[in-house]
């Protein structure tokens, strides 16, 4: 048994992941979008969270290459970008499954049976263990801290999609519907 507080947050790279050449994010339209974002703040640093979101939208996670690119675009050091990146749990520092499933298990949802929902997702996706990506690369399931929808237990986020009132039965259906 692990007493570590972060046991549920472990995210490991999926087995199928191979290093591919890095495609820069901030070119063309995305560069223009970033420039619009930059115009909203008096410092370039303030665009760091938005820039990391753009990277994740494009690549699905934020690699060391992406860290270098963001640092260069915003005049920051790569170490600084990594420090900020790793503070925020929604950014992926490793590749994750195509459907990244986050189940809220904090107390309000926990008392409503959220752990059963987690189990249902783990079973239905074949991930087996929290933080592991299924062999086909489609799913990663993690427990997440309070999603702020406690009255709709159990809320689940799949990538950017927010699903309320998920039950173990619904979990299986949700997984079955995904490609």
């Amino acid at each position: 048994m692990t007493y570590g507080p972060s046991a549920g947050q472990l995210v490991r790279p999926p087995a199928h992941h191979h290093d591919e050449p890095y495609v820069p994010v901030f070119t063309g339209e995305r560069r223009e979008k970033l420039d619009v974002i930059l115009s909203r703040y008096p410092t370039r640093m303030a665009a760091l969270l938005p820039a990391l979101w753009m990277v994740q939208d494009r690549h699905g996670w934020v690699s060391e290459h992406a860290v270098e690119e963001v640092a260069q675009v915003l005049d920051l050091s790569p170490a600084y970008v990594k420090g900020v990146l790793s503070f925020y749990t929604m950014y992926h520092q490793h590749p994750v499954g195509k459907h990244f499933i986050q189940v809220c298990t904090t107390t309000p949802c926990n008392v409503c049976g959220a752990e059963d929902v987690v189990k249902a997702f783990l079973d239905a996706t074949g991930c087996g263990e929290l933080g592991l990506t299924s062999d086909d690369g489609r799913f990663t399931v993690i427990e997440v801290e309070c999603l702020g929808a406690c009255g709709f237990a159990t809320p689940v986020m799949i990538n950017d999609e927010f699903i309320e009132s998920v039950t173990p039965e619904l979990a299986a259906r949700i997984v079955a519907e995904r490609d």
Partner: peptide, 11 residues
Amino acid sequence: PVMLTSNRTAA
């Protein structure tokens, strides 16, 4: 001592 799980140790 046990390896406390974190993103880092996983990497």
